[in-house]
Design a protein around this nucleic acid. Sequence first.
DNA 1: GCCGTTTTCGGCCCGACTGTTTTCAGTCG
Length: 570
Amino acid sequence: MHNAEIARKFHELADLLEIQGANPFRVRAYRNAASIVEGSSRPLEDMVAEGEDLSAIKGIGNDLAGKIAELVETGNLPGLEALQKDMPAQLSELMRLDQLGPRRIRALNEELGVSSLKELKEVAEAGKIRKLAGFGARTESRILEEISKLSDRDHRTRLAEAEQVVGPLVAYLDKLDEISRIEVAGSYRRRKETVGDLDILVASENSKAVMERFTSHPEVAKVASKGKTRATVFLKSDLQVDLRVVKADSFGAALHYFTGSRAHNVAIRKMAGENGLKINEYGVYRGRKRIAGKTETEVFEQVNLPWIPPELRENKGEIEAAREGRLPDLVEESDIRGDLHMHTSATDGRNSLEEMVEAARRLGYEYIAITDHSRRLTMANGLDAKRLRQQIADIDKLNDELGDIRVLKGIEVDILEDGKLDLPDEVLNELDITVCSIHSRFELSEKQQTERVLRAMDNPRFNILGHPTGRLINTREAYQIDLEAIIEAAAERGCCLELNAQPSRLDLAGHYAGMLREAGVLGAVSTDAHATDHLRFMHLGVAQARRGWMEKKHLLNTRTLKQLQGILAR
DNA sequence: GCCGTTTTCGGCCCGACTGTTTTCAGTCG
């Protein structure tokens, strides 16, 4: 049983408990546990199997530890079955609808016998909901609207797409003279690989003018709510954008508050409480007196902490690290000396070798690697030994002409099903670098897939495992693979893992990057560019490295060319 | 249901907006 499934069961139990009217803090404990499980870098199943004490995890007590063990061992979550006997399990599904929370769902169930989405739709269409106390015609029509949107709701927006929306939107708002500061907060600022919505924070003394400008933006399809200090809109792309206006004196407190994560905020507020302070989005208060709030640094100072980079604010140890003065010195995009994965028009890239090199040179890189596909990927016109040798000759010639950038001869070679690499060692030996990737047989079992990669790593020509999970955000799940075993093997063999910076991949995000770092395996942040424009995705990969607490020293392509060559030689 | 360097009981983050009210409950973030 995967962590995600354990988390889903806990969420479901929390939903049903909440609808039933259980102690809200008990409900919170279950939700909190779900989020701990989701964020765990290790499968809880393994921890149970190894007899580890789950109650040692903060937020998991004796009761939950026992429930997790039973769930993992039997597939049953004690308590959930009992609840499901008393109430229809589909009720938790209704929680997915906006505007519908536990109280209303309970009312709908008790008054109208609603126990599923289908039944909800029927009573709404029959006009029965508007007659219930606390409901009205407005709510009824919104429920119908929500149901119709539900099917295409289930995806989050990729960070790169969000960036494309943010740029123009912020520029549009910033034209208003009344706005003194503007910042995008939320998971966007924490640089998560996907965002659920955008949270824009503005400092202004004239919130009315800001609200008017925001809600009348030409891309706004619908204004969901609009008050004096806060508004929510949906853009034509269906992306939700929340705007919050505060006075300049509160900007730092509000920025901290709206950057989150929620778990981080709760922890910080608790610390404030212990010091007799109260923190809200307007500032830090001692009694009724406001003592800080203009900058984020001020807010952190009040709880005796240095400023914490947003990428770390997940309440996964950053507060303790800050307190003990051991926050990491996170890698910056400017630390990157070269891009080690890109394609040319020889295979499925859009630009020629010369164009790719020129574009990389303009970015100021010291080196790059050309890594076209290998022969197995016929769809992409993959290179066989002969064509690869031609490219090697072309690159040698180019290197003779160029002074300021070194072009490494490489290949993105397929890892075949049996773990062999898709080109003979003789030709791989003529290269400076290999990126080894899986492009076929995604459906293999975890054991088979893992062994396939481990065998490939035994080849001393194996340098970097390309896009290690194979997931495509919102499109394709990661293949089943035991990354922990792979990372361990990489540490022994001197292999590296890629942090693929393609907007739809970003597949060593957050906790996997953390695993890499802890195991002492170097990450290679690479764009996998298929066109000169794609070289600019580097910052997305660097952001994921930062979310994994990585410093310059944890990455391969922050090294000098000489150091790099030493590592590639294994 | 969790947690504890004052606590094994009694707390648990808190403000904004909407819709349905006529002073507030429910929901959200």
